[in-house]
Amino acid sequence: MRLGALPPDPRDIYSQMKGGSAPFGKEDEMYSFDFEKPSSIADAVAALGAEDAQALGGGQTLIPTLKQRLAAPSVLVSLSGIAEMRGVCVEDDGALVIGGATPHAIVAAEAAGSYPALAALAGQIGDPAVRNRGTIGGSVANNDPAACYPAGVLGSGATIVTNTRQVAADDFFEGMFATVLEEGEIITSVRFPVPQAASYQKFLQPASRFALVGVYVARFADGVRVAVTGASEDGVFRWTEAEAALNKEFRPDALTGLSINPANMIADLHGSKAYRAHLVSVMTKRAVMASL
C-alpha cells in the first residue's frame, strides 16, 4: 500500500534551519561531555575537582536537564559505582543510614522494616523505572520544590553527610533548587533518627508524578515535626504552628482552625495558591491520622 504525501518530518525542517543537527530524539541534543565512573568517594571527589565537572546520581533529573541544554558539564562523574555510597543500614543507636547513591527502590524495599514511613515515601516517587535509577543523594541535592525526599529528610530532622561535613536538615535546604552544598561536594549518606510514628501523605500531581502537595509528619519522644513539600515558593519548609499544636495534642482535630498563609504558595495550572494552602492543612491532618 502506498500512502499519499506525508507531512514533512519536523526533524528535517529543523536540520535545514540549523544546518544539519536535529535536536529530536538523539543524543546530539545534549552538549558533549566526558564520563567517569570512580569506585571510591575519594576518587569521585578528585574527579569532581575538574573545571565544570558534575556529579551524576541516577540521572533521572540531570539527563532531562542536559537534554534541554540547561547545563553543559565538561565531565559527568557517576556515583553509581561507589559501593560505600549504596545501601541501607541501621546503626547501634537505631538511626537509619542511607548511602547517598542508593536508588529509591532499594530504600522502599530495605527500609520497610526499620522506618516504614520513609520506605513508603521512597516507594511513591515517580514510577518503578524512575525508582530503580533515581537516588536519595540526587533528590536531596536537587531540592526540587515538589520532590518527596526533602520532606522526609526535613520532617525526620535527618543529618546530611557529605564528603566534608555533616549538616542538619534544618540548615541544609535553602529554597527552590538551592542547598548549602558547595561545588564538588557530594552527599555520601543521609542519617535518619527513627521517630515513634510517622507518615508521608502525598497529593499526587498525576502528570509529573511529583507531589502537588506532600506533608511529612514525624512524632518523636521530644516533639513533632511537620515538613511540607510542593507548596511553597521557598521549597520545603516546616509548618511550625502545626508542630506547636500537635505537641499539645497529637490528633487531627488539634489542627482545626490553623491555616497556612497562601501568599508564599506556588501557583500554576495545577493549583492556585489558595488551593495549595488548603491542601497543606488537609494533608497534614491525614498524616496525623495515619500516624495514630
Binding site: 564520563f35 540521572g59 533521572q60 539527563i63 559527568l76 527502590a105 523505572a129 524512575v130 535509577r133
Partner: peptide, 12 residues
Amino acid sequence: VAVKSCNMLALE
C-alpha cells in the same frame, strides 16, 4: 530491573 533507557547513559 526495569529502567527507562532514554534516561540512562550507555556508559552507565
